[in-house]
């Protein structure tokens, strides 16, 4: 399978991941305690915030293909454990749409896994640098009381939402670089 097609499939998964995380955020927001917005941790508290990533187009376009792939894979890998936490806590989330939220988190897990498998294959066809994965451990927990559960769940989701947008953006840039012989694709 040509790398263009693999990256195209990967981008479809990453696009879906980000869109799902947006829908989930909105769903959770429909019954979110106002105090939650005040006590919500800052984005710098996301467990992935230590990973240096480009912050605009010029920076992103200067990153090598192997390094963009490495960043996307590191971010995705960093979400494997926290997605399990999200899935487990969705079960007992004090929220009227708990079941729907749980199902969507399951979908996130499924897309993440498929995307991870796909990126393993693509990165194997690239410069060895693409295999490098930065380790970004997740250790926080969701908490016990109603406010903590909802706030930390939403916070974790907001971290995922940003990271999935990064992954999606990096993969779409990679897709277009791979497709440079067929400029009509981009």
């Amino acid at each position: 399978i040509p790398i263009t097609d693999l990256l195209d499939r990967a981008s479809q998964h990453s696009d879906k991941l980000h869109s799902l995380s947006t829908i989930l955020t909105q769903e959770l927001d429909s019954h979110f305690p106002p105090i939650g917005r005040v006590i919500m941790p800052r984005p710098s508290m996301c467990h992935t915030s230590s990973l240096e990533t480009p912050t605009d187009k010029d920076q992103a376009l200067q990153v090598s293909e192997a390094n963009l792939m490495s960043l996307a894979r590191s971010l995705l890998q960093a979400w494997m454990d926290p997605l399990v936490v999200l899935s487990t806590s969705a079960h007992t989330l004090p929220h009227p749409s708990r079941n729907s939220i749980f199902n969507k988190v399951q979908e996130l897990q499924e897309h993440s896994k498929n995307l991870g498998d796909g990126l393993n294959i693509v990165s194997g066809k690239m410069d060895p640098m693409a295999q490098t994965i930065s380790y970004l451990p997740y250790s926080n927990n969701i908490g016990q009381d109603k406010i903590s559960k909802l706030t930390n769940f939403q916070f974790l989701l907001s971290c995922f939402r940003r990271d999935s947008h990064k992954i999606d953006s990096f993969l779409k840039v990679l897709r277009c670089r791979a497709a440079k012989m067929q400029p009509h694709l981009c």
Binding site: K57, L61, S169, K172, V173, L174, C176, R177, P183, C186
Partner: peptide
């Protein structure tokens, strides 16, 4: 919109 680079689709 820089669609060529894939920055925006």
């Amino acid at each position: 919109a820089d669609t060529r680079s894939g920055w925006i689709t």
